[in-house]
Amino acid sequence: MRKIRTLFYCIGQGIRSIWKNRVYSLASAGTITACLLLLGVFYFVIANFNYAVESAESLVGITVFFEEGTTEEQILETKEKIRMRAEVADVVYISAAEAWENYKAESLNEELSATFGSDNPLEDSASLEVSLSDVSMQKILVRHVESMEYVRKVNHSESIAESFDGIKTLLWIISISLIAILVAVAVFLIRTTISTGINVRREEISIMSIIGATDFFIRAPFVVEGAIIGILGSVLPIGILYLVYGEVIRTLKEQFDSVFTAMNFIDRTKIMQQFIPLALIFSLGIGIIASHITAKRQIRKIELQH
């Protein structure tokens, strides 16, 4: 009961203080908003980028072709050996007949394919299509398969992840640098806000200390103030990003049909479920830590000056 009363007291004092210093409070919350907007934009870009790469990678595998005269039995034996490897998700055997049927269906019209009769120009094109559970192991797997008996050729593309590693790193560096600057500004503004609030209540704090209020009781309203500023600062960017994200994805798909039709974007609900906790931890963290440190230092000063 006593703790609940104290909690309400601290929240009440925190709100009162925010209202009294509303200009500074607004500036602090505004900086957190800017931080989170930037964080959100970069987070969404990078999360979608990773998602697209992962989706693409799940489709990518290697194709193994065999030397002329290799029997189906030998191919299936090789298939089993490959399938046993940890990095391999699945291996599908495509016989020469299936390969020819697939080719005909994809590339030849009926008239043209009829001219081949029962001939199979892809007689020696039976293959194994290997998909990986861990694409980072692709190079090692290719090297291993190439050294296997009966194997003529292994088709593979460089990992998409590897190709985009540089871009991802650059995006991270830019976003972290910008966020670090904004965090520094937010911390500075919150400290100024809390310091102003403490100065306004200097007399009250000095009396509280002499009367026997605990450090927690004196400091808590300011930490609550910081936390509220943090939460206030996070509401707007979460709302904006929620509204804008869906629109941007829709526009991208409509305007740049050829580029983005094949590309998958993370569903709005799903990405917000990831982003909201991150945003709240970030904004609350800045608010609480900055206000706690400031309150501790300033209140100690007041106690010594009494």
């Binding site: 007399e203 009250e204 000095s206 009396i207 200390s209 002499i210 009367i211 026997g212 209020a213 605990t214 450090d215």
Partner: peptide, 17 residues
């Protein structure tokens, strides 16, 4: 803080809110 609760203090300048 607990100790100070057992001591009442008044000042020349009253220190009222």
């Amino acid at each position: 803080s607990k100790y100070r609760r057992s001591i009442g203090v008044v000042f020349q300048d009253f220190r009222l809110l």
